Amino acid sequence: MTTDPAARSASRSPARRRLQLLLVSVLGLVPWSVQTFTAGSATLLFPWGLVGSATGSVTTITDFFLRFTMGLPDYILAWPVGVACYVVALASALSGVLFGREDVRLTAAGLILAGVTQLEVARGFSVQPGRTAWPVGTVLLWAVAGFLYWSRAGERDAGGSSR
């Protein structure tokens, strides 16, 4: 076993890249916003669509924006912008696994910006009577971005260069 930090870092790179891709991928499966209603029901907003907990109904993001576009408030338009930012982060992480080249700054920036958009979505939903929105995705997106960025920063410090 080598004691050289740069060599140790290089040997863990493929596993680390797969872990990073897994973390970023999981963010596509968790709700980014949870709207609770005074009546006791909830709506879960995922990057791919909406799920109504009371009925179990699913509305995909494409259906939402292509079929139900009349009179959408501005705050809901932040949702697809956040999804686009997330897709950039996911593509960057995937590039790390497939080609061994990832710009962790791009991955982290995509996640951070996606989190910012979800704050706007939650704010917009929360001003409606009888509804509270919880920006769960913002917390998760920012946590993963911070972990990816700072773990890579530690790698740069230990090895003297970025990998």
Rank of each mutant, 00 (worst) to 15 (best):
T3Q: 11
T3L: 15
A6R: 15
A7L: 11
A7I: 00
S9E: 13
A10V: 13
S11E: 13
S11K: 12
S11N: 11
S11I: 09
S11T: 13
S11F: 08
R12Q: 13
S13L: 10
P14Q: 06
P14W: 05
R16Y: 14
R17D: 11
R17F: 11
R18A: 11
L23A: 07
L23Q: 03
S25H: 09
S25V: 01
L29V: 13
V30Y: 10
S33P: 02
Q35G: 08
T36K: 03
T38I: 06
G40W: 00
G40Q: 06
S41V: 00
T43C: 13
T43Q: 11
T43R: 14
L44R: 07
F46V: 00
W48Q: 14
L50R: 13
G52A: 11
S53C: 15
T55Q: 13
S57P: 01
V58K: 02
T59F: 01
I61W: 07
T62P: 09
T62F: 12
D63L: 04
F65H: 00
F65C: 01
F65R: 04
L66C: 05
F68L: 01
M70A: 15
G71D: 09
Y75W: 12
Y75F: 14
P80F: 15
P80C: 04
A84M: 04
A84C: 04
C85W: 10
C85V: 00
V87C: 03
V87H: 03
V88I: 10
V88Q: 15
A89E: 05
L90R: 14
L90V: 04
L90E: 09
A91I: 14
A91K: 09
S92G: 07
A93Q: 07
S95T: 06
G96N: 12
L98D: 04
G100I: 03
R101M: 06
E102D: 01
E102K: 08
V104A: 10
T107C: 14
T107F: 00
A108F: 01
G110N: 07
G115W: 15
T117S: 10
Q118W: 10
Q118R: 15
E120M: 10
E120V: 13
F125M: 08
F125D: 10
G130K: 08
G130A: 06
R131I: 00
R131Y: 03
T132S: 15
T132A: 12
P135R: 02
V136N: 07
V136E: 08
G137N: 03
T138N: 05
V139F: 01
V139H: 00
V139T: 10
V139Y: 02
L140P: 02
L141H: 07
L141C: 08
L141F: 04
W142V: 06
A143N: 01
A143D: 02
V144G: 01
A145C: 02
L148D: 09
Y149P: 01
W150G: 00
R152L: 05
R152M: 05
R152Q: 13
A153W: 15
R156A: 12
R156F: 03
S161K: 08
S161A: 12
R163F: 10
